[in-house]
Write a protein that binds this DNA or RNA. Structure first.
Length: 630
DNA sequence: TTAGGGTTAG
């Protein structure tokens, strides 16, 4: 290995302003400075730089570049500023290369003002100067600025290269931007670059176009682990966990080793599908990265979303380092699983730690209040969030409060709060109010809220269903029929109820009206037997299924065979008696299934966990963790 | 001799 000093070149002084020093002395000063820079001795190099400046001397650009690298590795912002001042001392203009290095230093120090000052002052700029700027804006998520710079760069006659494209792709806000850049990339023959490819895959996936991402991926001849991570992560983020897990298998077959980023996406995929067994298997492979913060955060989330709170708590407690995401994940996880009081206690612990809560943390806290009907706590946290944490209430915070107030029977207060919102209420906000109207049976307000939702999100089948159920509850059959006609006319179809259960690391799906499961006959038989046994201990099947139809289970199908009941029967048939039965649903659980599961947990002496899109129900010994409040 | 891609919470 070459020693650092071997890099040191002897050179003549670049510029001499004062001639009181002999040429030999100047050379000695410069050589000493160069030696210290290459040895990365920052304090001594800074002193030597002072001497240079007092004698009007400048070293060569490569030496300063070394010194700046040293500042970067020590995050020495003050020293970086001194170097910059020295380089521009007395109107001296550093070489373009060196200005690029300086700009990059300020980017890494996150000092955008200085970045711009230097960039604006440059007499000439090359592709690297422009790309450094574009990358800086992309990283700060100032996407529009980054795209504007690309346009200015093109106007300046500078052609983008692979570095520019891989930076600017991250700044694309819409598909049209990506497609335009993609054309440029193909035209310039740059699509084979692995950085450009992974950036393209990533941006297509993040914009919800996994098909395009896969096309770019499949065209690849040679790739690396990061391209695999981009495509796996892309599918995991787009609720296509099944594809993500399939790609992960392909990645392993192709001989690539899964590292932190891969495993984090794999965990996210398991989280999306609530695949506890597979997630636990991934956990075993993660042990060697047990200090990795992001992976641990993903693990806590996976266990929470799979309803395995003991495991989530264990990982959380063993973590040596926790950040705001760790705390927020655990707080929301506890709240979603029905442990609201514990979630609020954890928030108090967080406050005594060094980590500051953020917007999402407070969403979790208010979520905990809303799911347990903790009205006073909710108001306290909502009213104090700005004063205590400097966080302005956003849609999600208002949404939790509207849900809390509405379900507590204070619909007037909920409407008042909705009207006071600083941001415009969206379809989700109005849907929250509609949900509260359903619980309270307030038809007039429900009609108003539904109208608002439909205006903002006309394709949402759930809204029509909730409204139709509210009418049915009041025996307004004409109105029910009108809704059905309206849906038919608009071609809106309700999403069929679907439940998934993992058995031997395989996912089994049960969909209303779908007979394709190979064991469906046995499953139905088992379910009917269970229904009869439950009737024996007091279960009264709801016959008026229209009244029970909550957000979309098909009215035409009998409640008897709602998808979660089929999945439960299958779980009882196939899983060992000590195993928890974990079911994931696409729609919210209905009242009849809720009673059914409570009784089944008692009769069969089993723990049953059902995860719906909003929250999880832990059934045990005839009770549910939600306290029948959902 | 400077510039580029992938991972976590609502």
């Amino acid at each position: 290995m070459k020693s650092v000093t071997s890099k040191i070149k002897l050179f003549r002084p670049v510029l001499t302003l004062r001639c009181s020093y002999s040429s030999t002395d100047q050379t000695l000063l410069l050589n000493e400075f160069t030696r210290l820079c290459y040895q990365r001795d920052l304090p001594k190099a800074m002193k030597a730089m002072d001497s240079l400046q007092s004698h009007g001397l400048w070293a060569d650009s490569a030496t300063y570049s070394e010194l700046i690298k040293c500042c970067l590795s020590h995050r020495a912002v003050h020293e970086g500023n001194l170097i910059c001042r020295h380089l521009y001392f007395n109107g001296h203009q550093p070489m373009m290369f060196l200005v690029n290095v300086l700009i990059n230093m300020y980017v890494k120090f996150n000092l955008l003002y200085d970045v711009h000052q230097l960039f604006d002052q440059m007499p000439q700029r090359n592709v690297i100067s422009w790309t450094t700027m574009i990358s800086a804006y992309s990283k700060c998520k100032l996407h529009q600025k980054a795209l504007e710079l690309l346009v200015l760069m093109l106007r300046d006659g500078v052609r983008p290269n692979v570095y520019t494209y891989s930076s600017v792709l991250r700044a694309c806000n819409g598909l049209s931007d990506v497609r335009m850049l993609h054309c440029g990339i193909i035209k310039e023959g740059l699509e084979s670059d692995v950085y450009v490819r992974s950036a393209l895959i990533d941006v297509f996936a993040k914009l919800g176009e996994p098909g395009d991402a896969l096309s770019v991926f499949d065209e690849m001849v040679t790739g690396d682990a990061i391209v695999w991570n981009s495509i796996i992560g892309g599918f995991a983020q787009n609720s296509r966990s099944d594809v993500a897990l399939e790609l992960f298998k392909r990645m392993k077959r192709a001989g690539f080793i899964a590292e932190q980023a891969t495993l984090t996406s794999v965990l996210r995929a398991c989280t999306g599908l609530a695949l506890l067994e597979l997630g636990m298997q991934a956990h075993v492979h993660i042990v060697k990265y047990d200090q990795d913060l992001i992976l641990n955060n993903a693990l806590v989330d996976m266990y929470c979303k799979c309803g395995s709170l003991d495991d989530a708590r264990r990982v959380f407690n063993q973590m040596k380092e926790r950040d705001v995401i760790t705390w927020s994940t655990m707080i929301s996880g506890l709240a979603q699983n029905g442990y609201s009081q514990e979630a609020l206690k954890l928030f108090e612990c967080m406050k005594s730690s060094a980590t500051k809560p953020n917007y999402i943390t407070i969403v979790g806290v208010l979520f905990a209040c809303s799911h347990a009907g903790l009205l006073e706590d909710g108001w306290y946290y909502f009213r104090s969030m700005k004063k205590l944490y400097g966080i302005n209430p956003g849609r999600e915070h208002y949404g939790c409060m509207i849900d809390l107030l509405g379900k507590a029977g204070k619909l007037d207060d909920a409407v008042k709060l909705l009207n006071e919102m600083e941001c415009e209420p969206d379809a989700v906000t109005w849907r929250t109010l509609l949900g509260a109207c359903r619980v309270q049976g307030n038809m007039v307000l429900a009609e108003y809220a539904a109208k608002k939702v439909i205006a903002l999100d006309p394709e949402d089948a759930g809204t029509y269903t909730v409204l139709s159920n509210i009418y049915a509850n009041s025996q307004k059959w004409n109105s029910v029929e009108k809704i059905r006609t309206r849906m038919r006319d608009r071609g809106i179809k309700k999403e069929p109820g679907c439940s998934w259960i993992e058995v031997n690391k395989q996912i089994h799906a049960f969909i209303i009206g779908d007979e394709s499961h190979p064991q469906i006959v046995e499953v139905r038989k088992k379910l009917n037997q269970l229904i009869h046994r439950l009737i024996g201990i007091g279960y009264v099947p709801e016959t008026n299924f229209v009244l029970q139809d909550l957000e979309g289970e098909q009215m035409e199908d009998s409640l008897r065979h709602h998808s979660e009941k089929l999945a439960l029967a299958f779980g009882l048939m196939t899983l060992p008696s000590e195993k928890v039965i974990r079911i994931r649903k696409n729609l919210r659980i209905c009242g009849d299934c809720h009673v059914f599961c409570k009784l089944a947990s008692k009769l069969e002496n089993r723990s049953i966990v059902i995860r719906d899109p909003i929250r999880y129900h832990h059934f045990q010994d005839g009770k549910c963790s939600c306290g029948d409040y959902w």
